[in-house]
Amino acid sequence: MAKVGIVIVSHSPKVAEGAADMVRQMVGEEVPLAWTGGNPAGGLGTSYEAISEAIRKAWSEAGVAILVDLGGAETNSEMAVEMLPAERRARVVVCNAPIVEGAVMAATESAGGSSLERVRAVAEELSAN
C-alpha cells in the first residue's frame, strides 16, 4: 500500500537536509521523502519551483504532507500546492507543525500505513499545546 510522502521545506538547506536525515534514521526508505531549502539564488529563503519539484519527488498516491519552518516557506508551499493539477491538489497538505519534530512524527505515522489525514493530525498535535 502506498505510504504518505513527506516534504521538508526550510529556509536553510542544512536544516532541511538535517531534518530529512533524522526522518531517514526513523523510517529508512519506507516513506517517500524530499527536502528543499534556500531561495532561487541559493541564499537562505524558499523557492516555489524547488518546492514544486520536491512535491513531485515525494509524490505518493496516498498523498503528501509538507512540513515548513517560517512564513515564506508556508506561503510558497501553499502556492505550490494550488498550482498542482486538480487531481493531486486535494492530496497535498501543509502541516501546521514544528518542522523537525513534525517531519519525524509524520514520517513515523506514514510508515505505519496511516492516511494523509491521520499523518497531518499527528504532526499538528505537536502544535496543539
Binding site: 531561495n39 532561487p40 539564488a41 529563503g45 524558499t46 523557492s47 516555489y48 519551483e49 512564513g71 515564506g72 506561503t75 510558497n76 501553499e78 502556492m79
Partner: peptide, 15 residues
C-alpha cells in the same frame, strides 16, 4: 516573480 524572487514576497507578488 514567483520563480525568481523566492520567499513570501515572491508568492505574494506572483499571486
Amino acid at each position: 516573480l514567483l520563480s525568481t524572487v523566492g520567499g513570501a514576497s515572491g508568492a505574494l507578488y506572483g499571486s
